[in-house]
């Protein structure tokens, strides 16, 4: 059984069909970059995988949990598939330390000391040890996003989903977040990321999935797929984003 298995996923918002039959699998340890124009369904796909969006039909299995089964334990699934958002979504009323500790305490039932220790280690890992007591609005966008990554990693997920996590950042802050992401990749984390950073996709991902009009249009090894696109759609998309 693969870590992620999607079988013929259909998803509509009202009368608009956003995902038109997506099937794919993903193995433990893989790093998959999902690229495509805005509106191609890539973020929706990611959100379906951890149950933030429900689907009309198809089957979704993630880390042994069938998300599409009625009554599926989505909270358990989400502990195994962490997610980082474009808009960081830190909890504004909690300090950095408590942002990371919250789910450790509530969901994993850790003691305060245990949770604090892990939170400190994770925040140090993203290079923000000196910001533990700071509140989100005292941090730059790049720093907030690094805390969001630490918060998600602290849950020790099997898989991490990253939804355009550098798209809301000022250009000069993108680098620090990508560096953290590279570090996470080097440690062998299984990752699926929706991204517009083609260089990052080429250098860090093993595999690239190009989505076009709600379908997987190309799926192949990262370097090969990006350097030698097989279809006209991917070629025109790449020439549009690269310049």
């Amino acid at each position: 059984m693969s870590l992620v298995e999607l079988t013929d996923i259909h998803k509509s918002f009202g009368s608009v069909e956003v995902l038109k039959g997506i099937s794919m699998t993903m193995e433990q340890g893989e790093i998959v970059a999902i690229i495509g124009r805005s509106g191609s369904g890539k973020s929706t796909l990611l959100r379906c995988i951890n149950g933030l969006e429900s689907v009309q039909s198809g089957r979704i299995q993630v880390a042994g949990i069938e998300a599409t089964k009625p009554g599926a334990d989505l909270n358990a699934l989400r502990q195994r598939a962490g997610m980082v958002f474009q808009s960081y979504n830190l909890f504004p009323h909690l300090s950095v330390e408590r942002n990371v500790m919250l789910a450790l305490r509530l969901v994993q039932k850790m003691s305060v000391d245990e949770a604090r220790e892990l939170a400190h280690a994770m925040v140090a890992k993203v290079g923000l040890a000196e910001k533990l007591a700071a509140y989100p609005d005292e941090l730059s966008g790049g720093q907030q996003q690094r805390v969001a990554i630490a918060r998600s990693l602290a849950m020790q997920p099997t898989l991490m989903l990253f939804d355009e996590i550098t798209s809301a950042l000022d250009p000069e802050l993108v680098g620090e977040v990508l560096k953290v992401l590279e570090g996470v990749a080097r440690e062998g984390m299984t990752m699926m990321l929706v991204t517009h950073e083609m260089n990052f996709a080429k250098n860090v991902a093993d595999r690239v999935i190009f989505m076009h009009e709600g379908r997987i249009h190309e799926d192949g090894p990262a370097r090969e797929t990006l350097l030698e696109p097989r279809t006209e759609e991917l070629r025109s998309f790449l020439s549009a984003v690269l310049h």
């Binding site: 951890n50 933030l52 989505l74 909270n75 358990a76 989400r78 502990q79 962490g82 997610m83 958002f85 808009s87 979504n89 830190l90 909890f91 504004p92 009323h93 919250l102 789910a103 509530l106 969901v107 918060r151 998600s152 849950m155």
Partner: peptide, 25 residues
């Protein structure tokens, strides 16, 4: 709504999201 989602993405159940994330804000 994103605050609800951020809580959900960390595995918090509805009641935990309400009492620890949304209500305090």
């Amino acid at each position: 709504q994103r605050q609800w989602e951020a809580g959900a993405a960390l595995g918090l159940n509805y009641w935990q999201r309400l009492t620890h994330v949304v209500l305090p804000q």
